[in-house]
Design a protein around this nucleic acid. Structure first.
Lengths: 205, 205, 205, 205
DNA sequence: TGATAATCGAGACGGTACGTCCGGTCTTGAC
DNA sequence: GTCAAGACCGGACGTACCGTCTCGATTATCA
């Protein structure tokens, strides 16, 4: 179940006795179970180790930080980053938002994502990890998509691309954080509809 | 320095020896200092108590939760919630966003806000507190403002007011969480400019 | 069961919630049981805490060091330090040696004594404790006894008192350490008989 | 620097790739350095291995026990066991005691000896090793010496030889263990002088 | 004038988790 | 069969907080 794109976040063994893949899997499974059942409050290396039947050292060897382990879980089976060669900006971004919303329906995945963000608030290492693995790539893909669209004159020239992405991702995070309103396909639909005028405002003027 | 609007979040004494206001102040001062100097990582009731020269019980007596204490700090000298009787929606919302951005420049305030949000992620009590004291009122005021504007036909009728607020507050939180882009007056300016077409899209069509 | 001569080796509470005597007793009981059943190898604060149903902190609060705890156990019900006002040096020292031999028959006591000595070999704090509580007092009493006897001209004047004590206690420790020969009343008898000529050598000359 | 008398305490290789003598030496050197610099507290196979640039397995292959390794260090360049054919008991025992005292001045050697004794207190294997390699031979030589002297009627017949040795070695260990008094040539001189009457007490009677 | 009641600082209490270290064993690939 | 490297489980280390509690002492209001 380990991701292919990011083979392993823990350092590689290289020489010496190779790492046991079963141990690896047991840790991830235990971590997943803990998060699913107990929520992030009960999530500790201590608990993970004991649940996985593994020594704490075996976890620290792979992931120096709670954030690093969470990131590994987050990355699992992940391949749907925004595609740069998409036909239209709108359809591609919609595809991405819908798939994100889909994943957020799984309490586990939501738990992972939130925990990751929480860790990032007080651990600079996790913050950096979050930026390089999650936020950065998504934004980069989005920017590329926007540049592509701008090149094709599908969207106006003077647009603040950074801000456009903030307008798309920000509301999602906002609702995740405070849960003041539902997150579903309808929300995506409405969000895109609202943001659309932004993309074509200058055109119409 | 205690707030006036929300006298105390902890229950009141009623009978018996009244609570010492100096103790109260010392706790808040110590909490503020700790957050300012050490960041939220070092922030614990234990530390606050020892820094304030106060017993832990005296803190728990007033604030049952880290979240409750943080909320008290957050509330201090707060009176600039959105005014319902504002002239125009745009100017009022701009005033609010600018004042928020201004406050976010203070690392202490930012620290408080983030810690509060973090606590809310795994403590339902804090989550509820956060909703009833922070998110709720702001959104209510915003909705009232939007309703007022809609009444006066300043904005189109079919607008999803909830979503409009998400579009305004979401990007702000998004940048606070990940720090991928600066938060300043220019950001507010651009944000409003971008969202404007949303408000008048139907009008122009 | 706590000794009276050395009330408690851990620091005293003075203010705040007073220490629970049951907790105190439970720790000592658990420690004693562990040493008796498992020997000193299994003896760890972790084990003691869990066996006593007590938190580790409660142990560390009282005894900062394994050596300190062992010392408390060693001191329990201890009142037979050499009496300075003894009739004759020989009878008094014999009484002390015999009672020591008696105690050494108890594997628990022997275990405590050895562990204490072992700790003292690499922990300066325990070494100091050992000196101030065990070795020092015994030697002081012995020296006083010798001085008394010298005063009464029961033993010759030019005697090296320090060395006399080494000759009496050294062989005992030597046999405890290596177990090359039995430690029993007969040993004490023979030891004293052998050392006697030393005490009266000059007299006879 | 490897000893010749006791080639290796670990089992010999027999067939397959022969053991690397450099590895052997590196381990002993590292062990010596660690003991010299850090004292016995920092002395662990883990540390020795890393300091020697050697795998832990390579150490365990040679010495199954910390005690075994310490014994190897202790044995290095050792050839001055008591000689049975000595002229007089007194001069020979004095020679031995003085050479021991000389060695004890070296903190390294003292450290090795103490660690060895400490290990022997809770590891039966090391205890046995200690007896067969250190205590046993010395006592055997001492007993032979005493028997020789008794044969020549240099010492009285009814003497408890075991006890005589305890009187000579015991005080030395006693001072090593607790450091309550200096260990030097003067001490040896006085010790022998004190014990002398023991040896000739019966003679004089 | 007391009783009652809640406060105060101090700190003990059982827990849980932290991140590190060591012990002894096992597993590689290379020699 | 050795070698260096290093993973593996188990377990202890000493520290930090958690939220609750128990003290002796203080300071109010109510009877």
């Amino acid at each position: 179940m380990t991701t292919v794109l990011t083979p392993t976040l823990g350092t590689e063994p290289a020489r010496g006795r190779p790492r046991n893949q079963q141990t690896h899997g047991a840790i991830l499974d235990a971590a997943r179970d803990l998060l699913r059942q107990e929520g992030e409050s009960r999530f500790s290396f201590e608990q993970v180790a004991s649940a996985a039947g593994v020594s704490k050292a075996s976890i620290y060897r792979r992931w120096p930080t709670k954030g690093a382990l969470l990131m590994e879980l987050y990355m699992e089976g992940f391949s749907d980053v925004v595609r740069k060669d998409a036909q239209s900006f709108r359809s591609e971004i919609k595809r991405y938002l819908l798939s994100t919303v889909e994943r957020l329906k799984d309490p586990l995945w939501r738990s992972i994502l939130c925990s990751l963000m929480v860790e990032g608030q007080h651990d600079p290492v996790t913050a950096e990890l979050l930026h390089s693995k999650v936020v950065g790539p998504r934004r980069a893909a989005g920017l590329a998509l926007l540049a592509h669209a701008a090149n094709k004159r599908q969207i106006p020239a003077g647009l603040d691309h950074e801000l456009v992405l903030d307008l798309l991702f920000g509301p999602l995070w906002y609702r995740v954080l405070f849960g003041h309103a539902p997150i579903n396909n309808d929300f995506v639909e409405r969000l895109l509809k609202q943001v659309e005028p932004v993309l074509f405002a200058h055109e119409s003027s």
